[in-house]
Simulated assay, not measured.
Amino acid sequence: MRAEENAAASKLQSVKRGKDARDQAARRGKEARKEAAALAQRRKDDPVYQAEEYLKQHKLLELFDLLSQKLVSERPSDPRGYLIAELAKLKETKTPSSPMNFFSGQDIETLYSMYDVSGRGLTRTQCLEAFDALGPSPLALW
Protein backbone atom coordinates (compact mmCIF):
# COMPACT_ATOMS: atom_id res chain seq x y z
CA MET A 1 0.00 0.00 0.00
CA ARG A 2 2.85 2.38 0.86
CA ALA A 3 4.48 1.76 -2.57
CA GLU A 4 1.22 2.65 -4.32
CA GLU A 5 0.97 5.90 -2.34
CA ASN A 6 4.59 6.78 -3.21
CA ALA A 7 3.94 6.08 -6.89
CA ALA A 8 0.81 8.24 -6.86
CA ALA A 9 2.65 11.05 -5.07
CA SER A 10 5.53 10.86 -7.57
CA LYS A 11 3.06 11.01 -10.43
CA LEU A 12 1.34 14.08 -8.95
CA GLN A 13 4.69 15.79 -8.42
CA SER A 14 5.68 15.00 -12.00
CA VAL A 15 2.42 16.42 -13.34
CA LYS A 16 2.88 19.58 -11.23
CA ARG A 17 6.50 20.04 -12.40
CA GLY A 18 5.33 19.68 -16.02
CA LYS A 19 2.56 22.24 -15.52
CA ASP A 20 4.96 24.65 -13.80
CA ALA A 21 7.51 24.25 -16.61
CA ARG A 22 4.86 24.92 -19.28
CA ASP A 23 3.62 27.99 -17.39
CA GLN A 24 7.16 29.29 -17.03
CA ALA A 25 7.88 28.74 -20.75
CA ALA A 26 4.66 30.55 -21.65
CA ARG A 27 5.63 33.51 -19.42
CA ARG A 28 9.10 33.67 -20.99
CA GLY A 29 7.61 33.54 -24.47
CA LYS A 30 5.17 36.33 -23.66
CA GLU A 31 7.97 38.48 -22.20
CA ALA A 32 10.19 37.81 -25.22
CA ARG A 33 7.40 38.83 -27.62
CA LYS A 34 6.81 42.03 -25.63
CA GLU A 35 10.54 42.85 -25.69
CA ALA A 36 10.73 42.15 -29.43
CA ALA A 37 7.75 44.40 -30.10
CA ALA A 38 9.28 47.18 -27.98
CA LEU A 39 12.61 46.81 -29.79
CA ALA A 40 10.89 46.91 -33.19
CA GLN A 41 9.05 50.08 -32.18
CA ARG A 42 12.27 51.70 -30.94
CA ARG A 43 13.97 50.79 -34.24
CA LYS A 44 11.10 52.28 -36.25
CA ASP A 45 11.47 55.51 -34.31
CA ASP A 46 15.26 55.54 -34.88
CA PRO A 47 16.25 57.99 -37.67
CA VAL A 48 19.21 55.81 -38.69
CA TYR A 49 16.92 52.79 -39.11
CA GLN A 50 14.45 54.90 -41.10
CA ALA A 51 17.24 56.14 -43.37
CA GLU A 52 18.53 52.60 -43.98
CA GLU A 53 15.04 51.38 -44.83
CA TYR A 54 14.54 54.30 -47.21
CA LEU A 55 17.81 53.51 -48.99
CA LYS A 56 16.84 49.84 -49.33
CA GLN A 57 13.29 50.53 -50.44
CA HIS A 58 14.34 52.87 -53.25
CA LYS A 59 17.58 51.00 -54.11
CA LEU A 60 19.50 54.23 -53.80
CA LEU A 61 22.87 52.66 -53.01
CA GLU A 62 22.70 50.66 -56.24
CA LEU A 63 21.76 53.82 -58.14
CA PHE A 64 24.63 55.79 -56.60
CA ASP A 65 27.00 52.94 -57.42
CA LEU A 66 25.86 52.89 -61.04
CA LEU A 67 26.15 56.65 -61.43
CA SER A 68 29.58 56.80 -59.80
CA GLN A 69 30.83 54.00 -62.08
CA LYS A 70 29.57 55.90 -65.11
CA LEU A 71 31.23 59.11 -63.89
CA VAL A 72 34.57 57.39 -63.45
CA SER A 73 34.45 55.61 -66.80
CA GLU A 74 33.17 58.58 -68.84
CA ARG A 75 34.93 61.43 -66.95
CA PRO A 76 32.66 64.17 -68.28
CA SER A 77 33.80 67.78 -68.14
CA ASP A 78 30.50 68.73 -66.44
CA PRO A 79 29.79 65.93 -63.92
CA ARG A 80 26.61 67.52 -62.59
CA GLY A 81 25.13 68.02 -66.03
CA TYR A 82 26.16 64.47 -66.94
CA LEU A 83 24.40 63.09 -63.85
CA ILE A 84 21.27 65.07 -64.64
CA ALA A 85 21.25 63.68 -68.18
CA GLU A 86 21.81 60.11 -66.94
CA LEU A 87 19.01 60.37 -64.40
CA ALA A 88 16.70 61.77 -67.07
CA LYS A 89 17.59 58.84 -69.36
CA LEU A 90 16.89 56.34 -66.58
CA LYS A 91 13.59 58.02 -65.78
CA GLU A 92 12.43 57.86 -69.40
CA THR A 93 13.40 54.25 -70.08
CA LYS A 94 10.77 51.54 -69.82
CA THR A 95 13.32 48.94 -68.72
CA PRO A 96 15.74 50.45 -66.19
CA SER A 97 17.67 47.17 -65.96
CA SER A 98 18.45 47.08 -69.69
CA PRO A 99 22.19 46.64 -70.39
CA MET A 100 21.96 49.66 -72.70
CA ASN A 101 21.58 51.81 -69.58
CA PHE A 102 24.91 50.57 -68.28
CA PHE A 103 27.01 49.93 -71.36
CA SER A 104 27.52 52.00 -74.47
CA GLY A 105 26.96 50.51 -77.89
CA GLN A 106 30.73 50.47 -78.34
CA ASP A 107 31.14 48.48 -75.10
CA ILE A 108 28.72 45.82 -76.32
CA GLU A 109 30.31 45.69 -79.79
CA THR A 110 33.73 45.21 -78.17
CA LEU A 111 32.41 42.43 -75.97
CA TYR A 112 30.74 40.77 -78.98
CA SER A 113 33.95 40.90 -81.03
CA MET A 114 35.92 39.42 -78.12
CA TYR A 115 33.66 36.39 -78.07
CA ASP A 116 33.19 36.14 -81.85
CA VAL A 117 36.82 35.35 -82.69
CA SER A 118 35.83 33.18 -85.67
CA GLY A 119 33.66 35.92 -87.18
CA ARG A 120 30.76 33.48 -87.67
CA GLY A 121 28.58 34.65 -84.77
CA LEU A 122 28.28 33.52 -81.19
CA THR A 123 27.42 30.03 -80.06
CA ARG A 124 24.92 29.60 -77.26
CA THR A 125 27.78 28.95 -74.81
CA GLN A 126 29.66 32.06 -75.94
CA CYS A 127 26.50 34.12 -75.65
CA LEU A 128 25.91 32.91 -72.09
CA GLU A 129 29.54 33.65 -71.21
CA ALA A 130 29.18 37.15 -72.65
CA PHE A 131 26.04 37.79 -70.60
CA ASP A 132 27.88 36.48 -67.56
CA ALA A 133 30.74 38.89 -68.32
CA LEU A 134 28.26 41.76 -68.40
CA GLY A 135 27.26 40.74 -64.90
CA PRO A 136 23.98 41.46 -63.20
CA SER A 137 22.96 45.04 -63.65
CA PRO A 138 22.77 47.05 -60.40
CA LEU A 139 19.15 47.93 -61.07
CA ALA A 140 18.01 44.48 -62.19
CA LEU A 141 15.65 44.30 -59.23
CA TRP A 142 13.72 47.41 -60.30
Rank of each mutant, 00 (worst) to 15 (best):
E129V: 00
K34C: 00
R17T: 11
F102A: 04
H58W: 07
Y112R: 06
L12S: 14
E62P: 04
P96V: 03
A133I: 01
E4V: 13
R80A: 08
L55K: 01
K56Y: 01
R80V: 07
L55Y: 09
S97T: 05
H58Q: 13
L63D: 08
P79A: 12
P47Y: 07
R42F: 06
R22I: 12
K44P: 02
D23H: 04
K70N: 13
E129T: 06
L90R: 00
H58K: 13
E86H: 04
R22M: 15
A9R: 08
Q50T: 01
I108M: 04
K59A: 12
R28F: 12
K16T: 08
Q50N: 01
E53S: 03
E86Q: 12
L60P: 02
I108Q: 01
F103C: 08
G135F: 11
K19G: 11
S97P: 01
R22G: 11
R80N: 11
K94W: 06
K70D: 07
R27C: 08
Q13Y: 10
K94N: 07
F64G: 09
A133S: 10
L87P: 03
D65F: 08
R124Y: 09
V117C: 05
D107L: 13
E4K: 07
S68G: 03
L139E: 02
R124F: 07
S137W: 06
A51N: 04
L141R: 05
A85Q: 11
A37F: 06
Q13T: 09
G18M: 12
S77D: 13
I108L: 10
V15F: 06
F64I: 09
C127D: 08
Y54Q: 03
S104I: 01
A36D: 05
D107P: 04
E86S: 10
A140N: 14
Q24M: 06
L66Q: 00
Q41C: 03
A40T: 00
Y115C: 02
A130N: 08
S14H: 14
L128R: 11
R33C: 14
A7D: 10
R33Y: 13
L122V: 06
T93N: 07
A26V: 03
A9D: 05
I108T: 03
P136F: 07
N101Y: 06
R120L: 07
K70E: 09
T125F: 10
T123W: 00
K19N: 15
A21H: 08
Y49I: 02
A7Y: 08
E74Y: 06
P136Q: 13
M1L: 09
L87C: 07
E62W: 12
Q126N: 09
L39K: 15
T95K: 02
G29N: 15
E4S: 12
G121M: 03
R75I: 05
Q57Y: 11
A25L: 15
D107F: 09
D116R: 13
A25E: 15
L39P: 01
G119D: 08
A25I: 14
L12H: 13
P47W: 03
L66F: 10
A38E: 12
R17A: 14
K91E: 10
E74C: 04
E129A: 14
